[in-house]
Amino acid sequence: MSITVPLLKAAQAESAAPAATDVALDLRGVGKTYDTPGRPQVEAIRNLDFQVGRGELVCVVGPSGAGKTTLLRSIAGLLDVTKGEVVLDGTAVTGPPEGMAVVFQEYGRSLFPWMTVRQNIELPLKEKGIPKAERREKVDKALAEVSLTEAAEQHPWQLSGGMQQRVAIARAVAYEPTVLLMDEPFAAVDAQTRAELEDLVRSLWKRLGVTVLFVTHDIDEAVYLGERVIVLSNRPTVLMEDVNVDLPPERDQLSTRSDPRFGELRGHVYSLIQKAKAGHRPEGEEA
């Protein structure tokens, strides 16, 4: 197993908030087995160990059925792990933790259809007890970040899929989380919108210095977005490889994707996924 503890780049360290530790998220020997009576036991995740540094953007890829969603739900505190622990900001996660925001794949179903865009973004802020004037300001700012200022009073279902997902991102951004989890957020939008949203995530990440864990099944997307790509094996899931993406921090759809290094990394991750699909596992691991 080749787990490389990431070294924070100077640029990221600058933008990150001052904190006691430079590790935002720490997975320590996490495992998850579903044990439903009347059904065979399912070992979804066997053992996962990795860290996400503060201010890092890390992508997780794996073959379909690799337990990506299980992993994300465990990190989000929506699912209990059966082994090991997930530590956020030095505290073990037992339920949905403070300082974490999740952007789900199903944008159409994660926004409250009975609320306007503004109300959707405002609701978690209300829960935080932020006063009204400040809430308004934060919502306006978040909407401006995703360039949706004019849609504030509309209902989510009046917007296109890409716009809806931008609302979900704005809601997460306004919440000012320590870690932003994204669960295949662009799997259901068309290719052009997808490229725009990818660039949006990159630029938000840079401007706001937020830590992002981005789960995807798209290899190109993972390499294009991530500073590191964590490749998962097939079920029961272990870590295949933690790939460091040594592309320049300034990325754009044209030049980055035609960069030879991008092609190499992409090829490398691709072959890892193919191996994972074929049932190949890291040394010392049996299926």
Partner: peptide, 10 residues
């Protein structure tokens, strides 16, 4: 997903 969203925003 709505229930999850509500939960994750505590």
């Amino acid at each position: 997903t709505l229930t999850d969203t509500a939960k994750s925003y505590r």
